[in-house]
Design a protein around this nucleic acid. Structure first.
Lengths: 152, 152
DNA sequence: CTTTTTAGTTAAGAGCGCTTAACTTTATAT
DNA sequence: ATATAAAGTTAAGCGCTCTTAACTAAAAAG
């Protein structure tokens, strides 16, 4: 078996394992807090972008601006999002996470990492080193690829 | 920085990258086919388990048997699932993927792997080898952990 | 300065997914 | 043999998300 076939197999298997695992955990956690997945995805997006307009969200989620506006309204009502007028463009809104919203997202990330940390702990020291190096290579490669895709 | 801190950081970053990426792609793909995420999760579960009862699904999804029954009914109507009586217990049903359902799931997996393969291709040969070894270590560790959790 | 475009909101209505409750049928326990 | 438990279905009802359509207000274009 060539290297490129081997790594493809290894990577596929690993991605399969993690996504299956983390998606399941994520869905359960969000549900246990009483939020829907669309709500959660919007919070996630605001978390990554720090600040969003309604139209940013509607584009990213691939829903209409009306739908985005309505869901944001609910999240503002729930105290998870803050919504302010953009000083540079008074038509636009600046949606940000409230303290409560940030807390929720960070807890969900921590939840996801409990499994990761368990996995880490189960490895011997030299295996840890090997794995660590390899993952940094991958993360870097993924980042590069993402950037290339954004500017084709 | 100790090895265990370093690997934890690397692993967290990598998991963060992949889940963010694959969840987004998955949601978009499923939606583009006109299916909901709950429907998709049920199909996924049947795909992994090969065969399921209604109660297996309701447990795994953490919904009532009524909800599972209703969603399965819709998926049977859509021709994605087959539902047969269990010959050993005539109360129970055996839910399996139809050819159409299996095709849908396998396409979604292939879709997810397009990114993985791009990533693979972007690495040099010696990096590929390093990464491949490391991922096998991780996949193995994850499997071991999963088994331990099932029998505590 | 008027016209057009852009950002967002609101309302009506359709479709899902979920729950509870009542029910049927089959298996298990006593 | 009878009572109880288990597997699944069905129906009513609620809340959510989404869409279209009509609207307001501000920015950009002409």
């Amino acid at each position: 078996m060539t290297d490129s076939l081997q790594i493809s197999k290894s990577l596929r298997e690993w991605v399969e394992t993690t996504t299956h695992r983390t998606m399941r955990d994520q869905v359960r956690y969000v549900k246990s807090l009483g939020f829907s997945m669309p709500q959660f995805f919007i919070l996630m997006q605001v978390y990554y972008k720090k600040q969003c307009g309604i139209s940013d969200l509607s584009e990213h989620m691939e829903i209409t601006a009306a739908a985005a506006s309505q869901t944001v309204e609910k999240l503002v009502q729930s105290g998870l999002l803050d919504r302010a007028e953009d000083p540079n463009d008074r038509r636009a809104k600046q949606v940000t996470l409230s303290a409560k919203g940030r807390d929720l997202i960070e807890r969900s990330i921590a939840e996801r990492f409990r499994w990761v940390d368990k996995l880490t702990a189960s490895l011997s020291t030299d295996k840890q080193k090997k794995v660590s190096e390899a993952l940094d290579i991958l993360t870097e490669a993924a980042r590069t690829l993402e950037i290339e895709n954004q500017t084709p």
